[in-house]
Structures are given as C-alpha cells and as structure tokens.
Nucleic acid binder design. Structure first.
Length: 273
DNA sequence: AGTACCACCTGACGGC
DNA sequence: TGCCGTCAGGTGGTAC
C-alpha cells in the first residue's frame, strides 16, 4: 500500500488515535525494523514520552515526541499502523508495538519486513541528508518542472525517483500518467510544456484525492485507472484492455489507446494532414 | 546518469 | 493436497 496517499492516511489515523498519550513500553517483536537504535535504547528513549504531532515527507511519516525528537516510520511495500485496546487483538505482522498509559496500543505492521523505524533529532535534516525531493502533494509547478527536466529516461522513472519528487511509487505513477494521457515509457526530455503542466496538476490532484479517500481503491473516482490495474482490466474511459510494460524493473499499467506511445508525434501528423 | 539485475522478506495465486 | 514459479504499492547495492 504505502505510497504517499497511504502514508498520509496513516498520518491522519495516528493524529486521531495515538497522540498525547504517554508511552509506557515499546515491544519490538522483530528488530530488523530498527535503524541505528537497539530495542532497549528505543524503549528507554520513548518511555514516559508521548507523540505530540505528525508530519510526512514523501513516503516517510514522522511522529514528533514531546522532547522534540522524531520517530520516523517507513512502510516499505506492506507496512501500516493500527491502534487497538485489547492485547489479544494485536494484528498479525505486528513488528513493533507501542503501549500507551491509557491501555491503548499502536502497532507498526509490516508483512514483508521492508519497513523501517528510526529515532531522529531532526526530521528536516533527515530529508536533506537523504536528498529527498520536494513532497509530491505540495510541489509547485516551477519546482516540478525543474526537477523533471533534470531527468533523462522514461517519464515513469522520473516520477518515481524520490530524489526528484518524493512520494510517488509504482501504482500512483500509473494513475498520474493515465490522467495525463502520457505513455509510461515516453522520453521525459521530449515532453511538451503542456505535458509537464498536466503531469504536475494531475500529480497534486491524484495524490490529494486518493489521500482524502483513505487511499482505498474502492473509494477512488470511477475515472481512475487503479481499480482496473490487473490482468484483463479495462480502461475506465474507452474500455480498451489495459496493457503493461516494464519500467525500472516494475510493471506499468496503461491504456494503449488513451496513452499512445507517440502522442506528440501523432498530434503533429494530424495537424499536417 | 541511465538501466538491468540482485538482494532483502512473506504470502497469494495459477499450473501441474 | 502439495510443490513450484511468478508476482506483489520499496529501497539500496552491484555492474555495465
């Protein structure tokens, strides 16, 4: 799940369910998840503290503690969070559990164990050190254009490059390209100014819309590609069967009719004839 | 600076 | 039913 809209949803969930509650204990079930900190250190650091507010950059969620430290969560491919009350309700694949003084528990879930938890002094500093690009949900047109224009190769790869723009992954890049009617393999250097503008506005629009709808494919607009992104799936616009192409080692889904490979060349041809 | 491939992990699914 | 290959929304490393 976890691309930007999913992480934004997790953020809202934490805001609603896990803030301002003293932490009594931290139970680390699988310590692969901890970066630069041992389970014991984490427990010592968090005991008695509380999460006061959250922020997000790209796919990273930051939980700010009442001593101005930050707990960074990254959800890999299968991560998530869950708050529950009874210990016997602890969800499967809980890797770390935070126990609050009020008896609630916050689980960091992660089936495939690609996620990460890290204690930081400064979230902004982390973003800078990792060379993360601007957050995709709030990036302005000029910055978006500059970042994308600096890339070579396919537009899909450019959108997914976290150092260019942070937060877009395999699924949402497909949606952004579909809404923009641009082929995933299109050469990013050959995009027109109009293409860039469409990509930018659809990036912001798609991510905001998905976040508002809790990144739940079933709640997305009917015009979206994502719910049809499977073998035999049909384009929601023209009902053509969706096609796939490999891009950066991932599978890109697209509509061969709405997203022709040479859409610019085609336009020119049409004009000439 | 690209891309291609491998690695890290677990689970679901289709084919035999 | 079981085994096997393939694939899955991320990232970091390698080599070319």
């Amino acid at each position: 799940m976890p691309e930007l809209p999913d992480v934004e949803h997790f953020r809202n969930y934490v805001d609603a369910n896990a803030l301002h509650k003293p932490i009594e204990a931290v139970d680390v079930h699988n310590d692969y998840v901890l970066e630069d900190v041992s389970p014991e250190q984490l427990g010592r650091q968090l005991k008695g503290r509380s999460f006061e507010r959250t922020s997000r950059h790209g796919k990273n969620l930051f939980l700010e503690l009442d001593n101005s430290q930050f707990l960074r969560m990254h959800f890999g491919m299968t991560g998530g969070v869950s708050v529950f009350h009874e210990l016997n309700e602890e969800p499967d694949y809980t890797r770390v559990r935070f126990d609050f003084a009020d008896g609630d528990h916050l689980s960091f879930l992660d089936l495939r164990m690609f996620g990460a938890i890290q204690l930081l002094d400064d979230a902004q500093k982390y973003v800078a050190q990792q060379h993360l690009g601007p957050d995709a949900m709030s990036v302005n047109l000029k910055t978006f254009r500059d970042r994308i224009a600096a890339k070579r190769g396919s537009v899909k790869a450019a959108l997914m490059d976290q150092e260019a723009i942070a937060g877009i992954g395999n699924v949402y890049s497909d949606e952004i390209l579909f809404q923009s009617r641009i082929h995933p393999s299109a050469d990013v250097q050959k995009l027109s100014e109009e293409d860039i503008r469409k990509l930018h506005s659809n990036t912001v629009k798609v991510l905001k819309t998905a976040a508002e709808r809790e990144a739940d494919p079933e709640k997305l607009p009917r015009t979206y590609l994502i719910p049809h992104r499977e073998k035999g799936g049909l384009c929601p616009r023209c009902k053509t069967e969706l096609a796939t192409v490999k891009a950066v080692g991932r599978t890109a889904w697209y509509c061969p009719r709405c997203q022709p490979k040479q859409h610019q060349a085609k336009k020119k041809l049409a004009r000439r004839s």
